[in-house]
Nucleic acid binder design. Structure first.
Lengths: 112, 112
DNA sequence: TCCGTTGCTACAATTATCATAGCAATACGC
DNA sequence: GCGTATTGCTATGATAATTGTAGCAACGGA
């Protein structure tokens, strides 16, 4: 375990074009990555609280994602415990906010 | 195979809160989902061309993602063949465009 | 000390993904 | 028609990722 290197320089699996967008797309295209960022968007959470927020996802993956996200510089472990977004992590989250409204439109438009 | 239902109503694995943002986050948090949308952002591509664009990802996953993305209403198979984004798919892609610029900032700021 | 919490890990079982090969259907030139 | 090349798509076994459950050491409060 813990073989994930820095997930930006060596790029993550499947996309080694060197273009950072690809690395980012691949990092975010991992299970729980987006969800973790989303759950952390308002306030820092302890690992357990984060787990609860993420539908009790297994700590194995959560820790793996957390490590990757930390290495990517989006998430950090606060001194008093608890995971929170870094400045860049918050920036990334801002980027995703429009997704929230889009999701609403999506539901209403597409069938159901 | 082909048990993916509509990936919005019954929600995808891990997030059955009913909130569409969760379903969307989960759908996009699958391997190649984001990448496919990204590669299709400018013009429709045939399944083979898409495969090439996606670093020769295996057709198994590509077809699975394509099916999910089609059921979600983001991607469609054109009459003359070739996959393209729907109006909503284009909308979603617009949402991701800021990600491109962010990725550039990300690289320059964070270490490497 | 005993309890409860923290972040984190081990392990086996289940899924997802990969990589390769190949299918039926269609469209072309001959 | 016949071969050839494309299309979208599927089968299969191997490999990697994810899950679920249990548990660890470290810290703090009672």
């Amino acid at each position: 375990m813990a073989k994930q290197a820095d997930s930006k320089t060596r790029s993550v699996r499947g996309s080694r074009t060197g273009r950072p967008i690809m690395a980012l797309l691949d990092l975010l295209g991992r299970r729980w990555s987006l969800r973790i960022l989303w759950e952390l968007r308002e306030e820092p959470l302890t690992s357990r609280a984060l787990r609860t927020a993420c539908d009790e996802a297994s700590p194995t993956v959560l820790q793996a994602r957390l490590t990757e996200l930390r290495e990517a510089g989006f998430v950090e472990l606060g001194d008093g415990g608890g995971y929170g977004l870094t400045a860049m992590g918050r920036e990334l989250c801002e980027t995703f906010m429009p997704l929230h409204r889009f999701a609403e439109r999506w539901r209403s438009k597409s069938g159901a």
